[in-house]
C-alpha cells in the first residue's frame, strides 16, 4: 500500500471507512505461529470462537487455514483446543518464503 501525503489524509487521524482494520497487517508481530495437526483436529471450531483477531479461516463449518497476515501469535487457540491439535512453533523455524516475505 502506497502511503499518502499529509494533504491527502483525513484530519485528526480519523478513519472514515468502517471495518478497514483488515488492511493493516499485523502478522509481523508474531514470534510463535499456530500450526494445526489435521489428523487430531475434529473441526469443533472452539479456536475460531476464541481467536481475538478473526484469524481462523473457516469454510463450510471446517477449518481451512490460519490468516498469518493478521494472526499475532497469542496462542489462545492452542490453549483452548480440546484435542491438542494446535502447536505454537517458533517463527525462526520457518524460512522467509514460508513466512510469505519478499
Amino acid at each position: 500500500m502506497k502511503e499518502k501525503g499529509w494533504k491527502e489524509i483525513p484530519l485528526g487521524g480519523l478513519i472514515l471507512e468502517a471495518g478497514n482494520a483488515e488492511k493493516y497487517t499485523t502478522g509481523g508481530w508474531r514470534t510463535y505461529r499456530p500450526v494445526r495437526d489435521e489428523k487430531k483436529c475434529n473441526h469443533c471450531l472452539l479456536c475460531w470462537v476464541y481467536c481475538p483477531d478473526s484469524s481462523i479461516i473457516v469454510e463450510e463449518t471446517k477449518i481451512k487455514e490460519f490468516d498469518y497476515e493478521h494472526c499475532k501469535g497469542c496462542g489462545i487457540c492452542s490453549v483452548q483446543c480440546p484435542r491438542d491439535a494446535i502447536k505454537m512453533v517458533e517463527e525462526t523455524k520457518f524460512t522467509s518464503q514460508e513466512k510469505g516475505e519478499q
Binding site: E3, K4, G5, W6, I9, G12, G13, I15, L16, A18
Partner: peptide, 20 residues
C-alpha cells in the same frame, strides 16, 4: 456513516498528522 476517532497512529502517519 461510522468513523473511527483516536486510532493508533504510528511512524507511518503520525508525522503527517502533525504537519496538518
Amino acid at each position: 456513516n461510522p468513523v473511527t476517532w483516536g486510532p493508533l497512529d504510528l511512524y507511518d502517519y503520525y508525522f503527517e498528522h502533525k504537519r496538518q
